[in-house]
Write a protein that binds this DNA or RNA. Structure first.
Lengths: 217, 217
DNA sequence: TAGATTGTTAATCGATTAACAATC
DNA sequence: TAGATTGTTAATCGATTAACAATC
């Protein structure tokens, strides 16, 4: 539901980065990978990595670390990334097009099977191999396919209307790339992706560094 | 510097959403806007909004709220968004192209003045009105223009090399859209933008909702 | 064996929330 | 005036970090 607070959200947010590190070490020799090593690669504290990994249910071996394959399976299983999940994308603009071509989604078990737009010039075409369909048929298509995830990349003004259609069609999760605070039923999860918050942090970090530089440089 | 911990990071992350709400209420009548109203629109606690706004230095008036224009100026000033800041973008792929056309950056005082790529077919063209230049000339161009911010949207394999060139050229902040943990000098700020962490949270939220649904629905 | 690493329990730290006097 | 709202001070909550016994 939209307003449930997910506990351990910071830990969950870090899990994909751990998964990424383990995958990179997959080919390299050794059956095990230690939390210490993962921590070092990500500039984190080892204890934090161990605590985070614990929520996936994995258990390691003292002195050795975590069995790589089991660790990958544990993280993927916890996140639901082990079985491929279909998604639709709404709004084939610049960002939508970019996300449709984003190869990394494969590693998250996320498959965009269709996109929707209202522009007649786009409808009927394919973008990165994904068919672009008429947004007017969205409700029918989603019901038929049973897709549960929608990626929302429409202009702000259309965001709430699109969300209404999506929820009515039975979508359970909306990955919201607009800057609109969506109003949805409680049983629908919304994850708002907000570029501006990251940029805010970057600018403040830069200011902080300049102050330090003046003082010490 | 890369590993400095910014205190009050969660508050800073929320500031752009407050700014967005105030801007939307700008035209509507009234000189003031209350923290209570902002909180309601964003599903936050009023006390949290007041605490967050306090770090910008703004002071409100009991019973009335915050003066809209002063509040906008305070947030923008705190974030450094009041004066336009130039940036370059490195890597004109799908995501790079999308960001080059992202209109919302105007509201953050961010101006992408040039992009760099190594593809001869792209070099010399313009994307969304922004010139695409040869990445081999990047060092020179950045030094000459004095740009301090770089948006990094190259493939993972090229990320560290690009970051090296950027820092050598005097870049002070890198907005990193790759999944590579960059190694940079301490005086360079890096903000890593990570789509997968948001997706992880979405999936866990959906799972939680399903469990609740089974129990109550 | 010795030393590195895990997992648990406790301590610390910081963020969120509560309470409430001041006030327009 | 009465009531809504601010800003401060205190309390709570949750996340991070520390300490350390167990162990391969």
């Amino acid at each position: 539901m939209a307003h449930i607070k997910i506990s351990a959200a910071p830990s969950i947010r870090r899990l994909p980065s751990y998964l990424h590190v383990v995958r990179q070490h997959r080919m390299m020799g050794g059956e095990f990978i230690s939390g210490t090593l993962i921590a070092r690669e990500l500039n984190l504290e080892p204890i934090q990595v161990r605590k985070d990994l614990a929520i996936t249910g994995i258990t390691g071996k003292p002195k050795k670390g975590y069995p790589k394959e089991a660790l990958i399976a544990a993280i993927e299983g916890f996140l639901g990334w082990n079985s491929p999940e279909d998604a639709v994308l709404v709004g084939v603009g610049n960002l939508g097009t970019a996300l449709m071509g984003y190869q990394a989604f494969r590693y998250h078990g996320l498959r965009i099977i269709a996109a929707f737009d209202k522009n007649p010039h786009k409808i009927g075409s394919t973008v990165h191999g994904i068919p672009v369909l008429d947004v007017l048929t969205m409700d029918t298509q989603i019901r038929r396919s049973g897709v549960k995830i929608a990626i929302l990349t429409v202009p702000s003004v259309s965001a709430q209307e699109a969300a209404n259609t999506l929820t009515a069609a039975g979508i359970e999760g909306i990955w919201n790339f607009t800057n609109v605070k969506l109003k949805v039923p409680d049983q629908v999860a919304v994850q708002k992706e907000d570029l501006s918050s990251g940029y805010a942090l970057l600018r403040v970090s830069m200011q902080t560094n300049r102050l330090i530089g003046e003082k010490w440089g």
